[in-house]
Every structure is written in structure tokens, then in C-alpha cells.
């Protein structure tokens, strides 16, 4: 049901993007083709493998650099939580605070218009640690797609969906026990806002 909702949002987003491209060409207000920006993103996550992860969310903030009108590279720091389903195979279970950083490449499918669809992919390092200081270290990958909106030359909003896979393979805090590496898979709806200073060095 949730997946269906996400697909509906994605379809609507792409439709909006297409409509926007057709009727709205506001290049004069579009953000600069190249330069620094700062992005804030919130991603409620929906379980893709409920036997491992029950729920979670991500909030990310970081700097980025637009390499051109269609390519952008971001370094996003992430905070959030993960509730991992109990398992005898893992020495630490329960609710974890998540922290991490992700390097992300975004490609806008059009260089014209103030509403443009995009796709993105990234990779990063993550930790999930409980209140006792115990948890896991790992890495993750992400892919996403959605639509970006640039109503002015200093702001960009993005709405999209993303898939996150995080794989944890090291213990943190020296808890007792052995474990097999495990992965958390999640789908999320992402909403982001970027500030583009537009200052040219």
C-alpha cells in the first residue's frame, strides 16, 4: 500500500515536471548553473525488509556544488533513527540513533525550465548506535528520483522518492558477541530545500 502511494507520488511528480516544462520557462529566475549551494533534506523511511528494520527516518544537511546546470555533487550529513527488529543473530537490537555522511551525484534531466525532473545516486558511511553506546558501523548506497523546482534564483525545492540500502558489518562499542553482517533496506519520500547563494568567486 505504501509502495503504491510512493509510486503515485512519483507519477504525479513527473507529470508536474512535464507540465512545468511545457508551460513554464523561467530561466531568468533559475538558480545559477554552477556554484555552491546548501541542501536540507528530510526523508521518512518505509521498511522494505520488515524482518530487519521496523521504521526510521533521515534528516540531512550539507554543502553541494553545481557542476553545471544539470549535474550537482552534494556532501550530506545525516542524522536519524532506525528501529531494528530483534534477532538472536545480532548482539545489539532495538532503537538506534543513526548518523552518517553521503556523497551524492544528481542529474537533472533537463537544463531548461524552473521545474525539472532529476535522478540521483550516492554512497556513504553510516553508524547506528544505541543509548548505551553500542551499535554497528557500515556503509550505504542510495538511488533516487523526483522533481526539482526553482521559483527564484536562490532557492531550489525537490520532491522525490529514494531507495536506501545500508549494510552494517562492524561492531561499535565492543558489545559481546559475533554477528553476520546485515543490511537495512528502505524506501523513502524525500523533501528538500536548497539555498543557492549565487556568489561567484
Amino acid at each position: 500500500m505504501r509502495l503504491a502511494s510512493l509510486l503515485a507520488i512519483l507519477t504525479t511528480s513527473v507529470s508536474l515536471a512535464t507540465a512545468g516544462d511545457a508551460v513554464t520557462h523561467r530561466d531568468s529566475s533559475a538558480c545559477r548553473a554552477e556554484g555552491l549551494f546548501f541542501e536540507l533534506r528530510a526523508v521518512p523511511l518505509y521498511e522494505a525488509s520488515p524482518s530487519v528494520m521496523e521504521r526510521g527516518e533521515l534528516v540531512m544537511l550539507g554543502p553541494g556544488y553545481a557542476l553545471s546546470r544539470v549535474w550537482a555533487l552534494s556532501l550530506l550529513f545525516a542524522t536519524g533513527s532506525r528501529v531494528v527488529a530483534p534477532s538472536a543473530a545480532r548482539p545489539v537490537n532495538g532503537e538506534f540513533a543513526l548518523g552518517g555522511a553521503r556523497l551524492e551525484l544528481t542529474y537533472f534531466l533537463s537544463d531548461k525550465g524552473s521545474i525539472r525532473p532529476f535522478c540521483s545516486a550516492g554512497a556513504g558511511l553510516f553508524s547506528i548506535i544505541n543509548v548505551g553506546g553500542l551499535g554497528y558501523n557500515g556503509n550505504g548506497i542510495h538511488v533516487g528520483a523526483g522533481v526539482g523546482w526553482e521559483p527564484t534564483d536562490f532557492f531550489r525545492g525537490k520532491l522525490g522518492v529514494e531507495y536506501d540500502r545500508m549494510r552494517f558489518f562492524n561492531l561499535v562499542g565492543q558489545p559481546e558477541g559475533q554477528f553476520e553482517p546485515f543490511a537495512l533496506n528502505a524506501l523513502g519520500v524525500s523533501l528538500s530545500a536548497s539555498f543557492v547563494p549565487g556568489i561567484v568567486p
Binding site: 546548501f38 544537511l61 542524522t79
Partner: peptide, 21 residues
């Protein structure tokens, strides 16, 4: 590495740019 500290760092560094903009 505290993501919250990094958030604050990013905000603090962005303020002079926002003031210029």
C-alpha cells in the same frame, strides 16, 4: 563524528554567504 555538530558547522559557514546574498 557528530552529525549535529556538522549541521551547525554548515549553518554557521552559510550565514556569511546568506548575508552577502
Amino acid at each position: 563524528f557528530s552529525p549535529g555538530d556538522a549541521f551547525s558547522d554548515v549553518i554557521g559557514a552559510a550565514i556569511p554567504l546568506a548575508q552577502e546574498r
